[in-house]
Design a protein around this nucleic acid. Structure first.
Length: 432
RNA sequence: GGGGGGAUUCCAGAGCGGCCAAAUGGGGCAGACUGUAAAUCUGUUGGUUUAUACCUUCGGAGGUUCGAAUCCUCCUCCCCCCA
C-alpha cells in the first residue's frame, strides 16, 4: 500500500515536501510525530497524528512516537500556548507510560515484527545538552534570519490581521531549534527521514530538515495533515465538559461513544476517513447507504462503533450502545431496574449525583422540596413547577405530571436511586 | 473648560406617577415535530406550598407623593458634540 496515496484519499494530507513519496518507495524508513506529555492521557485531538503513524506502519514503515518531555517545557509559539509548567521527572515518566499504553492500541510495538513502533522521549537527549553545547553545535547552523522568517514567529513579532504583535520570549523563539534537533537526532539514531504533524507544525518541521541538511548533508522530509474542523465552525474535540480523552477514567466510554454519535452528517464522512482504517471504497458505500436513509445515521453509528472498539473495547461499546438506547430510546422503568450496579454506574457516569438521607424519602417528600431544597438539582421551586407543567420532568423514565404526588420509598430503584430526567438529555441521580 | 445624552431583568432594548415583575427581540429551558441533526411551531424565562397575594429587582444614596423604573437633589460610571 502506498502511504501517501492512502492518506491523500483519506483527506489527511495538507502539505508535503517534494520527493517524499519517491523516498518512501525506496524502502523502509521511519517517521515520527511529536506528542506533548502534558497529561497522562491522549485526547482525540492527538488522534490525527496517531492515525498518520498507524497508516505509516500499515504501509510497512516504522513509526516513532516522540514524547516531548523537553519541548513541552518550552511551549510552542505556533499555538496560542501559554507559559508551560515544568513537569517533574516522575510525572513525565508516568505520563509517558500511560501514553505508550494508549498508543499500543493503534500501533504495534512488538519486537517480533521488523517495523515495530517505538516510543522515545526527547528529554532523554535534550536534558544532557548544556546550553553552551547546544548553541555551539546546533544554533551555529541556523541563522536568525531563517528563524524569524517562520510564520509562527513572524506573527508574534509583527502581529496579524486580527491580532496585535505580542512578541515572544527567547525560550519560545528557540522552540523550533529544539524540535529541529529532535529530528536530527532521530535521523541519526533511527534512520528517521520524515516528520509528520498538524499543518501548524510545518515551520518547525522544516527547521529540522534544514538542520539535517546542514549538519549531516542529509535529506529529510516533511508532511502535514490539515487541522480538523467542524462544519459548524466549532472547535473539534471539545464539548461543554471539556476535552474528550482516551482514558476511560477521564472520559467514560459512554461519553466517548456519544461524542462520535453526535457528529454531524458532513463531519462524519470526513471523520470516518480520518479516524478509522475502514477501506476507502467501503467508506464510499457507507456514505451512499447513509444518504439513502439519513435518519438511520449509519455514518455516525459506524464511526462511533469503530473508534470506541479501537480505543476501548467491544464490551465497552456494547455497554455504551445499551446505555444510549436506554437514555435516548424508549427506556422504561423496568429496563432501569434490570441494570446491575456496574452497568448502572457506567450508564450514568458523568451524570451529577446527589446524596440524601434515606429517611427523607421514607417519610415522603414533595417534588419541590426534593429537587430544589434537599438536592440542589434545580435552583428554585418555581423552576421545578414550570418543568412539571411543561411535561419536561421524568422520574425513573416515567413522566412526572402531578406535582401533588409525594415521593416515597416506592420511587427508589433497587432501594437506592432515583433517576431524574429533565427534558430529553439532562439526567441527575439521587442516591440514598 | 462649555454643552448634550445615557445607565432597565442573562444580553440588546421599550417603558404614560398607579392597570409594571416591567413591551419586543436574542439567548436559555421545556413541549410538538424529528435522526440524540437542522429548520419550524408552541409554551416558558426573579422568588415564595400558584396567589385577583406578598417579597426582592430598573447604577448608588437621599427626597417629594397615599403611591416612583418613571418627578427632584447629590454621587458614581459611560458616551457624544464644541473649544
Amino acid at each position: 500500500m502506498n502511504f501517501v496515496e492512502e492518506i491523500t484519499k483519506r483527506g489527511m494530507l495538507h502539505n508535503i515536501m517534494p520527493g517524499t513519496e519517491e523516498m518512501l518507495k525506496d524502502g523502509q524508513v521511519s517517521a515520527y510525530v511529536g506528542i506533548d506529555p502534558t497529561a497522562d492521557s491522549l485526547h482525540i485531538g492527538h488522534l490525527v497524528s496517531v492515525m498518520l503513524l498507524k497508516h505509516f506502519q500499515l504501509a510497512g514503515h516504522k513509526p516513532i512516537a516522540l514524547i516531548g518531555g523537553a519541548t513541552g517545557m518550552i511551549g510552542d509559539p505556533s499555538g496560542k500556548s501559554q507559559e508551560r509548567n515544568l513537569l517533574d521527572l516522575k510525572t513525565l515518566r508516568h505520563n509517558q507510560e500511560a501514553i505508550k499504553k494508549q498508543l499500543s492500541k493503534f500501533l504495534n510495538f512488538s519486537n517480533e515484527i521488523e517495523n515495530n513502533a517505538i516510543l522515545v522521549n526527547n528529554y532523554d537527549w535534550m536534558s544532557k545538552f548544556s546550553f553552551l553545547d547546544f548553541i555551539r553545535d546546533v544554533g551555529k547552523h541556523i541563522s536568525v534570519n531563517y528563524m524569524i522568517a517562520k510564520d509562527s514567529v513572524k506573527k508574534r513579532m509583527l502581529g496579524s490581521e486580527d491580532k496585535d504583535a505580542e512578541g515572544l520570549s527567547f525560550t519560545e523563539f528557540s522552540y523550533q531549534l529544539v524540535q529541529g534537533y529532535d529530528f536530527l537526532h532521530l535521523y541519526k539514531e533511527h534512520n528517521c527521514k520524515l516528520q509528520m504533524g498538524g499543518s501548524d507544525q510545518w515551520g518547525n518541521i522544516t527547521t529540522g530538515t534544514e538542520l539535517i541538511r546542514r549538519i549531516q548533508q542529509g535529506k529529510a522530509y516533511a508532511l502535514t495533515s490539515p487541522l480538523i474542523t467542524k462544519a459548524d465552525g466549532g472547535k473539534f474535540g471539545k464539548t461543554e465538559s471539556g476535552n474528550i480523552w482516551l482514558d476511560p477514567k477521564k472520559t467514560s466510554p459512554y461519553e466517548f461513544y456519544q461524542f462520535w454519535i453526535n457528529t454531524s452528517d458532513e463531519d462524519a464522512e470526513k471523520y470516518l476517513k480520518i479516524f478509522t482504517v475502514i477501506d476507502t471504497n467501503e467508506i464510499k458505500d457507507i456514505i451512499k447507504e447513509h444518504k439513502e436513509a439519513p435518519y438511520a445515521r449509519i455514518l455516525q453509528n459506524k464511526l462511533a462503533e469503530e473508534i470506541t472498539v479501537m480505543v476501548h473495547s467491544k464490551k465497552d461499546l456494547d455497554t455504551s450502545v445499551a446505555a444510549s438506547k436506554m437514555l435516548f430510546g424508549k427506556g422504561t422503568k423496568e429496563q432501569l431496574e434490570s441494570l446491575n450496579d456496574n452497568t448502572f454506574n457506567a450508564v450514568f457516569s458523568g451524570v451529577p449525583k446527589f446524596k440524601i438521607n434515606k429517611e427523607v424519602i421514607s417519610k415522603g417528600i414533595n417534588i419541590f422540596d426534593l429537587l430544589a431544597e434537599e438536592t440542589q438539582i434545580f435552583k428554585s421551586k418555581a423552576e421545578v413547577r414550570r418543568l412539571v407543567k411543561d411535561k419536561g420532568l421524568s422520574l425513573n423514565m416515567e413522566k412526572f405530571t402531578n406535582s401533588d404526588t409525594l415521593i416515597t420509598d416506592q420511587y427508589l430503584l433497587n432501594n437506592k436511586y432515583i433517576v431524574i430526567r429533565q427534558g430529553k438529555k439532562k439526567y441527575s441521580i439521587i442516591t440514598t
